[in-house]
Amino acid sequence: MAKVEKITLSPEQKLIERKRKLTRIKKDKWIYLLLLPGALFFILFKFVPMWGVLIAFKDYYAGINFWMAPWVGFSNFTDFFTDSDFLRLFKNTLIISGMNLVFFFPLPIILSLFLNEMKIQWYKKAVQTLVYVPHFVSMVVICSITFMLVKTPSIDGFTGGALYEIMKRLTGQSINVLDTPSNIYWVLLIQNIWKETGWGTVIFLAALAGVDMEQYEAAIVDGANRWQQMFYITFPAITSTIITMFILRMGAVLDTGFEQIILMQNDLNKTTSETFDTYVYNVGRVDGNYGYSTAVGLFKSIISIICIQSANFLAKRHGQAGLF
């Protein structure tokens, strides 16, 4: 019975459904027009080149005809997973990226909230402008300044870098920041914080521009103190931006970049600082082993998409808007 009913009813339902969709599409025709330029961009420059991921399954080098290059199935992947360094790379990548997520990610938010509390406008603007300057200073310069600051004395009796001397005076012992393997994580993190925190506030300040001043006035009338205002008005106003940023950040969970790490690497911290990105840089960009480095990239992509989707799912489950 039920089956028969479905067969007889379903086409009608489908028809109605399709008609409904068609009217909606017609109604939104201008919206589709707006979407067109963007869609064209994504098709031309993002989807057309997408055949490039097939390279991961080939033994391919730039210059060799793509179709002539032999298919190697998953061997690029198995080579990578069985590499004796794989677990170490994975661990380092997760530590560096995880520390950024835990310690760096909240800082621009906190800084924006503080900036929002500054009521002297010209002062606030000056501070804003200054904190975003480091974003424009090249990593090469930041790293070379780091060396100058934490340098240990070359020979007993010489003076070290400014930061080294300060730490020595405070703790009474000489701390060599650069020669202990696990320190590299903190060095990379602090450089990142130093360079990007101010820049990171830009997006949150834009979100804060949308807060209705009347809400603060009402809260003051209700006797809310400043912390309560910050907590109940300002913070909720940027929650959705924070969540969006967080979800997008999850997509980059295996990205560490290579320039900064390679600049800070030395023989004593290589075991702790080698990540997927530096590995791909060495094997792919320097050596031109395109199939292999594409495979590593594809592996990273798959992890990323899983992370983004899970973060998005969790956000939606907790009643937030999510990314899409």
Binding site: S144, S154, D179
Partner: peptide
């Protein structure tokens, strides 16, 4: 201590520094 104790972490771009300042 005939060579610098921070040789393992001493950045190559600063190689000339101690020579030019008359330290080594």
């Amino acid at each position: 201590q005939l060579i610098n104790q921070d040789m393992a972490t001493y950045d190559g771009t600063k190689w000339d520094e101690q020579f030019l300042t008359g330290k080594a």
